[in-house]
Design a binder for these strands. Sequence first.
RNA 1: GAGCCGCUAGCUCAGGCGGUAGAGCAUCUGACUUUUAAUCAGAGGGUCCGGGGUUCGAGUCCCCGGCGGCUCACCA
Length: 489
Amino acid sequence: MALERNPLIAGRLEKLSALRENGVDPFPPRTPPRLPVEQVRAMGSGHGSEVSTSGRVRARREHGKTVFADLSDPTGRIQLYFNSREVSPELWRLLGHVDLGDMIWVTGTLFTTRMGELTLAVSGMTILVKAVRPMPVVKVDSSGEVHDAVSDPDLLYRHRCVDLLLNPVSRKRFEDRSRIISAVRAYLDGLGFIEVETPILQQLYGGASAEPFTTKYNFLDRECYLRIATELYLKRLLAGGFHRVYEIGKDFRNEGVDRTHSPEFTQLELYEAWSDYRGMMARFEELVVVSAEAAGKGGEVVYQGRTLRMEPPFPRIPFVDALHEKSGEKLFDFEPDRLARFAAGLGIPVESAARPALLDKLFDHFVVPGLVQPCFVTDYPAELSPLAKRNSSDPRLTERFEAFMAGIELANAFSEQNDPLLQRSILEAQAVEDGVRQGEVDEEFLYALELGMPPAGGLGLGVDRLVMILTDAGSIRDVILFPHLRREK
RNA sequence: GAGCCGCUAGCUCAGGCGGUAGAGCAUCUGACUUUUAAUCAGAGGGUCCGGGGUUCGAGUCCCCGGCGGCUCACCA
């Protein structure tokens, strides 16, 4: 939409050209020396010395010969006071061209008003930025109640800058996200892990079962994929002698979107030689504690009204035991046909009547909703875990766990399968079932196993979901700055 | 991909059974020298998401489409 069609914008554009005609640059290249608002406030009133700051004009209250305005920067908010008897006629005229949302630099002295508010009596001002587009005005009354809060999620997701400016909760959430990721890095770096970057653009995808995004590399005239996981590359590094490695980066899955799924999401994967899935439980517990601290949370986190106790050790719940207990049936021992009939009886779609998929769906149905407090579900069926080591006591199961909280899967980890012959047969069998990959297996990955990959534990952790829980976000879109949306018409 | 709900001024929202489109904030004009959701008086501002249909007449009813939200499906 053309800017001028909005009368509010047209009015601002007129003020902007009026400023230019008077020789005022509405977008000057430099800001005069200034202190952050927070520091100005800390000085307090009564010392009489001149201070300067800058920020965005967020409110304006006119009283004839005086004007009050609120100025804010990322560190805080301060009230400005303009008195037409005390400022120059030029400044008073300039003030008439300042709109809500404009950024200004001001200088003056601090005093306290009758109402007891610390205020800067302005004696000098320059315009730093003329805001051409008005932003919604949100008011907060003396009891702290917010009026006219912008509630249109489309507007807030599409124009995240508006959301960040208007919603302190959202702003804090993204600051916490940054702190959490920094804390995760600091924790792993402190243990001697090295952070690496592996390919996002791949000619063969793997490491998870998900539909990839497909693209084309023109130079090679070849189809390429965006990665769905980093697993197979990081394990090559294990074989290559990087015994503690991790990567934090985006994975892409061409699947549906919901409260906990985004097509583009941030995953931490870490691999640690000479460890196993039990070692990964300890890593997970420590990562959660460190992250909660980074988000300013203690041992208890309230998520969507439920209190989660973040105090390790988290209980271990064997997959099969939980499934049998919650369903009241020995489902793991059912023949595939009987399992399919049982699932169909519950209204669970059984199009892909494969036993592994059914077990997983039944687990999601019976067990996952009840996994509110942090816990580990352990010993997943081997059929669901092609890259995990078999359980020595029961080869139908694997040394694997998934971590859950608030019914959300946060992490997946196992003792990594490093038998190259067994791994090859599993992957080849799977490739036959999976038509999309047309029988291809990742030979480079198998090459690394053949060379010898140390026994190791590996952990994949959904960073967005961890941030959701620690910042009480109801949707993954609330913790992704620019979530995927359809194009605006 | 399916079902349900929503879309009205820049923002938040009203619009009974189909009969000339409303409020608060924001904007503009005027008043006001310590206000703070400032106040008071006045004014302007609309492709009622888009298209089609029914009707003398549609923001309102019907159909198709767009975008969003929720739920489901998909996601080892």
